[in-house]
């Protein structure tokens, strides 16, 4: 069983985000990047499947700022192989371009299952999992929270709303957009990441022709208006608590 896990980095959303001079993209000068949390779940699920029934796990990512750290972290957690896809992507890579680049590289690889995050915070033109599946002509299910391998097929749980789930049987190879792994993604200490940098080979493969038409252009990026946003309560924690309790009293919400 060969499992491929495409991962990518997104800006750390706890950071303050600013628009750049063009007015169309983030000011990336001081941005901190981290692995897309849903890709981290996809990697975790792949590693769980490996531990359960044996598999080769390969993490793959498009070249971007600091991506090697995320790839070596994947190796430190248990990925067997790493691939960096090289090409002239720029900083904000549209999902269609990313999916096409991954599809090009995957054509020369052997795999049974592709697990990647269900979405990322900057997928303006759609989710990579589904795009990738259709460039490769493979079946896909997104918003997956449980994966079981049985007789060369994957039995998966797809979440709807309110805790309702659909169960599907998917022929392999297939692509699954992972929402949550069966357990909290493991953590790799820095020492193990350093060790992985020394012991794991990072193979580079060219993206090939990624000239797909995205078909839309960004006109502007802006912070959501906060005109009807919250009235802020200020003061010491004690003041704040008093004010909140007053608001609750006024509305008859205090027992």
């Amino acid at each position: 069983m060969n499992i491929i896990v495409p991962i990518k980095q997104v800006t750390d959303l706890v950071e303050e985000l600013e628009v750049d001079a063009s007015g169309k993209d983030l000011n990336r000068e001081w941005l901190k990047y981290k692995i897309n949390e849903f890709d981290d779940h996809a990697l975790e699920e792949a590693l769980c499947l490996k531990e359960e029934s044996g598999a080769n796990v390969m993490a793959i990512a498009l070249d971007s700022a600091d991506i090697e750290k995320s790839l070596y972290t994947a190796a430190a957690k248990g990925a067997d192989k790493l691939i960096k896809v090289t090409g002239d992507f720029g900083e904000a890579i549209p999902s269609h371009v990313a999916a096409k680049a991954l599809a090009n590289v995957l054509e020369s690889l052997e795999y049974d299952l592709i697990l990647t995050g269900v979405q990322a915070a900057d997928d303006r033109d759609g989710q990579v999992a589904v795009l990738l599946a259709h460039y490769l002509g493979l079946p896909h299910v997104s918003v997956v929270t449980g994966v079981n391998l049985q007789d060369g097929k994957a039995i998966v749980h797809k979440e709807y709303s309110g805790g309702l789930m659909g169960e599907f049987e998917v022929d392999l190879p297939g692509v699954l957009g992972i929402q949550a792994a069966r357990q909290t993604p493991r953590y790799a200490p820095v020492s193990r990441v350093r060790q992985a940098m020394r012991s794991t080979e990072l193979e580079e493969m060219p993206a090939g022709d990624v000239s797909v038409a995205v078909g839309t252009t960004v006109q502007r990026m802006f912070k959501p208006e906060t005109s009807d946003g919250a009235q802020m309560i200020e003061g010491s924690a004690e003041d704040v608590a008093n004010q909140i309790l007053n608001i609750l009293s006024e509305r008859g919400l205090k027992q």
Partner: peptide
């Protein structure tokens, strides 16, 4: 852009070669 819709929109975008704007 729901659980079901996420499985459809991007699929149609590729298969019909149509641009997609999500979220």
């Amino acid at each position: 852009n729901t659980s079901m819709g996420m499985d459809l929109a991007a699929a149609l975008s590729v298969d019909l070669d149509l641009p997609l704007v999500a979220y």
